[in-house]
């Protein structure tokens, strides 16, 4: 029977910690950038004329319908060849992860906006409000309520998706795991520890999400 030796990981705790920080860093920065992209693209998709919304649709579908792994590798290896910009692995990862998240957030936002009854727009117009104000004060707050569950889901996925940056040798949690495995020969202990760490970060997030959802749903 296999004897678990978690003690063997002791010398590597510094590396694991470092990896965890990198994972969290990529999650926070790419979720933020992705949200910004999603907000702009999502709003434009619902309000802008066709010559704007059709290319945006194209962007969304390309990033939603191709594997993130391929996007990362492509961003790192192919983009420099095509347009001559050299990106560091870190930059390529940031760009790919942000655009990937942005495409999903944009669709979540669009769905949320379109789920708000047209009567809400009309009620705002009927009291003399202008488009931008109706959007900010009436539609967006209601769209947000609808969006929260999908948004949290996508953000959880985003944190897990950052593990793919290890492919281009960015030192996230998973990458450090593979490095440690190569020297310690303890893959079971290493990957179990990493799984536990992902869980410990994400599980509280889902609890917070439940709470927000309940509080926001209180007046529906």
């Amino acid at each position: 029977m296999y004897v678990w030796e978690f003690a063997a990981l002791k010398p590597y705790w510094g590396l694991i910690w470092q990896g965890l920080l990198v994972t969290l860093f990529y999650t926070v920065t790419t979720v933020t950038a992705g949200l910004l992209i999603g907000l702009i693209v999502g709003i434009l998709r619902t309000t802008a004329p066709r010559w704007v919304s059709v290319p945006l649709r194209l962007y969304i579908e390309i990033f939603r319908c191709t594997p993130l792994l391929v996007q990362l590798v492509w961003m790192y290896y192919a983009l420099p060849v095509l347009i001559g910009v050299d990106m560091s692995p870190a930059m390529a990862c940031f760009v790919a992860l942000s655009l990937y998240a942005g495409s999903f957030y944009a669709e979540i936002l669009r769905g949320g906006i379109e789920a708000v009854d047209v009567g809400q727009w009309e009620a705002g117009r009927a009291i003399g409000m202008r488009r931008g104000k109706i959007f900010r004060r009436i539609v967006l707050p209601q769209a947000t309520q609808v969006m929260i569950p999908s948004f949290i889901n996508q953000t959880i996925m985003q944190l897990k998706n950052t593990s793919l940056v290890s492919v281009v040798a960015v030192g996230d949690l998973l990458y450090q795991g593979s490095v440690i495995t190569a020297t310690s020969y303890k893959p079971l202990e290493v990957y179990t520890t990493i799984a536990v760490l992902y869980f410990v970060v994400l599980f509280p997030l889902t609890l917070v999400a439940d709470q927000i959802e309940q509080r926001m749903g209180a007046h529906r």
Binding site: G119, A123, A126, I127, M129, R130
Partner: peptide, 24 residues
């Protein structure tokens, strides 16, 4: 334009069949 419409609607109140209150 949107601004001109908004100005008109300030002086004309409307009540809808389905109320359209702001639920939030």
């Amino acid at each position: 334009g949107d601004a001109q419409l908004a100005l008109l609607r300030r002086s004309v109140g409307m009540v809808f069949q389905h109320f359209n209150l702001f639920p939030h």
